[in-house]
Write a protein that binds this DNA or RNA. Sequence first.
DNA 1: ACAAAAACTTTTAGTCCACTAAAAATTTTA
DNA 2: TAAAATTTTTAGTGGACTAAAAGTTTTTGT
Lengths: 209, 209
Amino acid sequence: MEGSQTLSLRERQKEGRRARIIAAAKSLFVEAGLGNITIEAIAEIAGVSSVTVHNYYGTKSGVLLALVAESDRELLETLDEDLSHQPKDSIDLLLRFFTIVCDHTLTHLDKSVWRQVISASVDGDEPRFNKLYRELDYRLASVLIREIELLKAAGKLSESANSTHLGWAMFNLQNARFVEFIANDSKTRDQALHDLRNDLLALSTLVHS
Amino acid sequence: MEGSQTLSLRERQKEGRRARIIAAAKSLFVEAGLGNITIEAIAEIAGVSSVTVHNYYGTKSGVLLALVAESDRELLETLDEDLSHQPKDSIDLLLRFFTIVCDHTLTHLDKSVWRQVISASVDGDEPRFNKLYRELDYRLASVLIREIELLKAAGKLSESANSTHLGWAMFNLQNARFVEFIANDSKTRDQALHDLRNDLLALSTLVHS
DNA sequence: ACAAAAACTTTTAGTCCACTAAAAATTTTA
DNA sequence: TAAAATTTTTAGTGGACTAAAAGTTTTTGT
């Protein structure tokens, strides 16, 4: 019934199952934490057997991983669109970067799920998580480094600054505040943003020692 | 047979079991990851039933939590001894702080276990972990803030710097590098130290914008 | 000093769920 | 129509966690 692209019927069916599984998982993750959901439940909503879920994604956090990978791709696109070619100064750059990251994460999943994601990214049980997160961090830092170089080119930042080092330092700083933002349900984005600004201002006084 | 301090026999027995359980857990955690160890195994070495382990510590990560709490207490003592009253400058302060933290953590447990600790501290399943880590962070940052004030008093840091903000910013920065150090088996303490120095140097150029 | 009570631990018996292996059934492909 | 690919069913295993009954040891009141 369907037009047969370059994919065989079998491949299309597989793709469909894959999509149904992560859609089911997403809907469940949002209404209950990772720990309160069974693979069985995901499988049932997706219309496949639980064994198939295991065969496709290996473990329960493997399913979460697939969800997150999708979200990451979008985040990088959004950053490219919203951040590029309007450099003001380095502090403003990081604050806007941070705002975009915070807003983006919450449009996909809520804090409790992101806590599980961050948690999985550091524990060693799921090496793929580790890898995915290393890559994401690398790409996010690269965005900052690129923007820092634009600032330099525009004369808005001293040429003496090492773009790579500064990019990673700024990334680490905002990431610390991001994790804190995610770890506390009561912490608002604006509070976190405020704290991050204070971090930057305080550190820039170091040179006066 | 034992002299009866202020504790009843029952309380002493309990204390003994508690101690035996965490000792058993520690020995097992070091030779295999958290995930490869059963409560049953811990109980057997400690000479109690598995139900008792559950009654005492609730969950498997509850046992780990108790271990970590002990290590934290020691870390704060070590910091007080090794760091205090020799302020040089703020960059050197943070690098020494970082060195002490890295060295201390590895004398107790290895990276794979600390990964589980960090992981547990952010996921929401074990609220006690969250609480313990918030407290530890607060105390560690306080150490830095106190030292920063000593630097100011000694004229080695501008009076215009906000000690609290600077303390937290520096703490966050070193903590990011600490997590990276723990997350990578191949990352050495000296590499991490080097990266941290670059972070600080890069950020101190911000003011020249 | 002794018996009853209180405080614990252990044993027992289960539940739940992730994860696995292999046989059976189904469906696409050739 | 036979072969290949893939899912489902079936059947387990392992281990965390729980509830409650049974057993043991300390405490306590007299």
